[in-house]
Structure formats: C-alpha cells, structure tokens
C-alpha cells in the first residue's frame, strides 16, 4: 500500500516540473502575441499618420485648387467615378443578392453561381481593367473615359454587394417573411416592402465599404479612364463636352492614378503624390471607420431585440 502511495507521489512530482516548463512556454508565447499585436497597431498608426502628415506638410496652397495644377479635380473625379460605379453595382448587386437569398435553389446551378461570384471577387483588378479596356474601348473604338472606369470598379464591387445583400436577407428573422406572406403578399411584394427595407442599414454599410475600396482603385483604371484630367468649372467652357466635369464620357484621372503616374514621372511630382496619398488615406479611413461604426450599431440593435 505504501509502495503504491510513493509511486503516486512520484508521478505528481514529475508533473510539477513539467507544469513549470509548460507555464514558462505559455508565458513566452503570450508575450510574443502581445508584441505582434502591439507592433501592428503601431504600424497602422505610424503608417496612416505618416501618410497624412507628410502629405499636408509638403503641400503648397495652389495644390488644393480645382484646376490644372491642383489635386482638386482628381479628387472630384475619384468621388464622381465611385458614385457612377455605385449607380451600376448597387442595383445589380442587390438584385443578385436577392436572387441568391430568396430564389436560388439548392442545386448545381447555384453552386456554380457561387463559384462564379467567388471567382469574380478574386480576379486581379488589373485583369478586370483589361477586360473593360478590351470590350468598351478597343472593341467600340472609344477613347478612355470615366464611365468605363466606373464599370470596371462596379464589376470589382459586385461580389461584395451581392454577398452583403444575401447575408443581410438571410439574417432576418423568418417571421418577417412569414408574416407578410401570410397576409397574402407575393414574394416580390414581401421582398420589396418588408425584407429589403429591413436590410437597408446593412446594405448601406456594404455600399460604404465598396465606396472606400473604389476610392483607392488604380489598376483597373490604368487603361480605362486616362490618367490626366482637364475639366473646367466654368460652364461657358462646356461647349466642349470633354471639359464638362459631369460628363461621364470624358477622360478623368483619379487620385490613385495621380500617385501611380508620379512613380513614372520625373522629379517634382512627389509633393502632389504625397498630398494625393494623404487625401486618399483620409477618405478611405473615414469610410472604413464609418462602416465599422454602422456595423457595430446594427449588431447592437439586433442584440437588443433578442
């Protein structure tokens, strides 16, 4: 009996040293993980801070103007292009999402459709840009213009809009649909008047995310929009439609293209590129933070109703 007891005691003692070692290893890794997390927070803040500060400290007042030398027109083109792209991608993406969530049956076709959407979302943006260049410019013998760029950006954001809408529809409580259908509404009426309105906050979050990504898109625009811009804000000049800022069929370089061309351009373009980076950074950050904030609010609201 005592022998058994000794053996038992020995076992506990062996595990004591092992436990100490395991705990030491555990502590080391915990420190490593904290360091990595800290490193990335620092990197992000340093990166964003550097881009923004560098951009504005190097800027001269005339760079902010909406004319040939300023970045103002590039800023306008960026916003206008993203706006145009959303006009295309939001309706198509939302309808696509409705199809996926409400109409698609669980069959091979739907599976194929899902793979197609995944493929679309993983295509390099330069490939999509080349596609736009090919069918809208080469095939139609047109000059580079904003609309083609907007179409390319829309193609790139379609998967995001579709999946956002689908997820939003799927996360609604089934009672919404049952309630409406139970009152004799058709599926179309139910979707249009009950389900989609309930999804609006999430869809808006998706739109903001898509816009944020659109602002920075460059590779897809490289051969589609032209990298310079010569729009005029004086309506008298608009007899030449290529000078009208609101004409989608004109050339129109964006901020991101301005940065790209500074890479190939001679010296002296640096300050403009820095400023463009800073402005882009602020646009992207504010849209990201806005989307995140909205998402948090939606989650909170959903949590409250439960």
């Amino acid at each position: 009996m005592t022998e058994v007891k000794n053996e038992k005691k020995a076992r506990v003692e062996v595990s004591q040293s092992l436990i100490r070692r395991a705990r030491a290893v555990d502590n080391i890794w915990t420190v490593v993980f904290y360091l990595v997390a800290l490193f990335f927070l620092l990197l992000l803040f340093a990166f964003a801070g550097y881009v923004i500060i560098k951009g504005f400290t190097g800027a001269k007042p005339e760079m902010f103007r909406f004319d040939r030398n300023g970045v103002g027109n590039y800023f306008f083109n960026t916003v206008y292009l993203v706006f145009l792209s959303l006009l295309i991608s939001v309706p198509i993406g939302v309808m696509g999402g409705i199809y996926m969530a409400e109409y698609a049956k669980d069959n091979a076709f739907t599976k194929f459709l899902r793979i197609a959407i995944e493929t679309l979302s993983s295509l390099p943006s330069i490939v999509v840009g080349l596609f736009g260049y090919l069918i809208f410019l080469v095939a139609t013998k047109s000059q580079p213009n904003l609309l083609v760029g907007a179409i390319c950006v829309a193609i790139l954001s379609l998967p995001l809009m579709t999946t956002t809408t689908e997820d939003a529809l799927r996360s609604l409580p089934p009672s919404y649909k049952l309630g409406s259908m139970g009152m004799g509404a058709t599926l179309r009426q139910t979707i249009q008047s009950v389900l989609i309105p309930a999804c609006v906050p999430r869809i808006i979050t998706g739109v903001i995310l898509a816009a944020g990504r659109g602002f920075g898109e460059a590779a897809a625009l490289l051969y589609t929009t032209g990298s310079d811009t010569n729009i005029k804000w004086n309506p008298a000049a608009w007899v030449n439609p290529s000078l009208n800022p609101f004409n989608p069929l004109r050339r129109g370089g964006t901020l991101s293209l301005k940065i790209w061309t500074s890479f190939t351009a001679s010296v002296g373009a640096e300050d403009v590129a820095n400023l463009s980076s800073a402005i882009l950074m602020i646009m992207v950050l504010s849209f990201s933070i806005l989307a995140h904030y909205l998402e948090g609010r939606i989650k909170k609201k959903m949590g409250d109703t439960k």
Binding site: F40, L41, L44, F47, A48, Y50, V51, L209, G212, R213, F215, G216, E217, A218, A219, S256, I259, W260, S262, F263, A273, N274, S277, L280, M281, V284, L285, F287, S288, I289, H292
Partner: peptide, 17 residues
C-alpha cells in the same frame, strides 16, 4: 477594426510609401 482598416488602404498608397 485596425486590421480591417488596413484592408481598405489603397494599393497605390502602399506602393508609394
């Protein structure tokens, strides 16, 4: 959130920096 913001930073800005 910080990581998600990283996702949105345009590639040309990364390239430029």
């Amino acid at each position: 959130p910080a990581v998600e913001i990283f996702v949105g930073i345009p590639s040309v800005v990364y390239g430029w920096i």
